[in-house]
Design a protein around this nucleic acid. Sequence first.
DNA 1: ACTATTTAGTCAGTTAATCTGACTATATTC
DNA 2: GAATATAGTCAGATTAACTGACTAAATAGT
Lengths: 152, 152
Amino acid sequence: MAENHHEYPRMLGALLRIPFQAIVTKIEAGLRARGYTDLRPAHFVVFQHIRPEGSRITELAERAQMTKQSMSELVHYVEAKGYLEREPDPRDHRASIVRLSMKGEAVNNAAREIIRQVEEEWSNQIGREQMNALKQGLMAIIRVIEVENSNQ
Amino acid sequence: MAENHHEYPRMLGALLRIPFQAIVTKIEAGLRARGYTDLRPAHFVVFQHIRPEGSRITELAERAQMTKQSMSELVHYVEAKGYLEREPDPRDHRASIVRLSMKGEAVNNAAREIIRQVEEEWSNQIGREQMNALKQGLMAIIRVIEVENSNQ
DNA sequence: ACTATTTAGTCAGTTAATCTGACTATATTC
DNA sequence: GAATATAGTCAGATTAACTGACTAAATAGT
């Protein structure tokens, strides 16, 4: 809200939003170009939050800040398209563990590759030094956010 | 996708996403706390893109990268709640101009204030210097994005 | 000048994304 | 072992966004 506009200086919200949106758009387009046409932006959260050893649905829901019912649906869809595998959790028979399938790993790598390319392009334009400063700043803020969240 | 995780270094996508999400969450909570309970995140785009002199619906739709039908609905809702005023465009009788009402300006200012506070808090944590470097870097990237978009 | 085309916006209907509430089955606590 | 909490699903509702068809006004072409 009220974050933008060429005329007066942009607020931090818009400063973060515009590059983030741009990168999301590029990931979408890049995945489509590579033939992954059955994944929509909503499904990205599954890939964003799943751990390499696999995650529970409840855990994914929590990390993505949505209800477990909604996450359950997303996982179902993504699993049905072959990007996920699911197995019962041996320690807790109520739960199941979802992890990326080989196809899932492949999209994930494709997405990483796209992001890497975008970073490189931007880095070429603004300079490696400024890009590094930017990343350091973002990491510092993320650490602050994580502290806030942990002792909320 | 594949942007996160404590274990290995985060990708640029996650570096941008996490602070952006955090700020959106804070804006939501802050507006709710100030009594603006009828605005949902979807409506924020209207405020983000409207120009001080007012904007057309088609223009807002374009800037928000959505269809004019969808934007039309959002504008309707936000207008019905009293945040917007609408008047016919004297230059083009097909179009109308929407602009913020006094109530609309008030939420906008509230949102700006919330963002300013978040920036200040973060700045206190990471240091004014690093915050400035971060903002400079984001602005530089936004300039790159704007050039890309203009000669796409 | 008038016909054809484009543009601004709405109406109607659909799909996608997310929510709430109720439920089953398994775990945990006391 | 009974009471309570947790993981996940099912069903239904709401919200967000889309496509297609349309009206009215503006612009372009001849």
